[in-house]
Design a protein around this nucleic acid. Sequence first.
DNA 1: TATTGTTATACTCTATAACTATA
DNA 2: TATAGTTATAGAGTATAACAATA
Lengths: 168, 168
Amino acid sequence: MADTPPRLDDVQLEAYFALMEVAGLLRHAVEQQLREAGDLSYVQFQLLARLGLDSATGSERMTDLADGVVYSRSALTYQAALLEKAGLVARAPSEHDERSVVVTITDAGRARLAAVLPGHTEVVRQQLFQPLSRADTKALSGLLSPVRDHMRAAPPRSAAPRRRKDQD
Amino acid sequence: MADTPPRLDDVQLEAYFALMEVAGLLRHAVEQQLREAGDLSYVQFQLLARLGLDSATGSERMTDLADGVVYSRSALTYQAALLEKAGLVARAPSEHDERSVVVTITDAGRARLAAVLPGHTEVVRQQLFQPLSRADTKALSGLLSPVRDHMRAAPPRSAAPRRRKDQD
DNA sequence: TATTGTTATACTCTATAACTATA
DNA sequence: TATAGTTATAGAGTATAACAATA
């Protein structure tokens, strides 16, 4: 279709590869720490963190949890079931909409989160932030936040035209 | 041990979360494209790219391939076997060291790589680089490259003290 | 003895599609 | 009819440990 194949130049390639490798290594390091310190996968940690840190009430609907954490609903059901079996969250039908399920972090969940957080923080600090000054960190955040917003808003088009959560 | 739990401040948290989400969304988009355009996983693409683009000869030892692409040797054996079965690489014992296995990209492997690359590039350009100016891209690369080098050199210590490729 | 690579095994996680129930 | 969530199923990928072969 497009007759001008837009190559990535050297600077872009370097940025792309560095981004993917840094994120990959960081995730790997963090996953090890979470597993050893609290027997949590990264996704499970993200769910607990969203409920325990981001949410004022400690509760969220499954659908809202799915956004941003996981790519399919069944994956969320699977992880939520694991967390519930471990006693770290509770699931109950919503009062306003009987179709919805509200997930709530339990005291045990908050305790697990608190147990894991210092080590988690420590890994991120040592691996990611040690070579970055405060100005660097601000600059990094300033560069990546718009990219994140752009990605959330713009699902892949030409080369990967599928939508993420809808059927065709 | 440490009596000063070093929290991450808001700027660091923002940078950390943005990094992980950007890399996660990008990898997801890229994996879809690679699967649809060439039936390749991201790891398989990385292996082909290293052999076909980075290596002058098109060949590398298994051990050298493992470094930077994969976290365990068995995972590399698994992926290399898949690529070989698909005819995209060939494996042969090294002449200099009979223990080593040299992996070489085939013509079919180069063709597959060429078939996949334009779409891959297009996804990365649209998803990652569209909101970034050239100066932004340079800055991003300048920030992340030192972090990558730091991570390669400094395996996780206190909180996750295991080494990556050695036994205890 | 140390290194290179493979294999057997078991496990985690994910996506697809079919399904139930409520709005 | 559309939305929320679950389940069954099947597949991809990984790590661990034991193993064989060579340096």
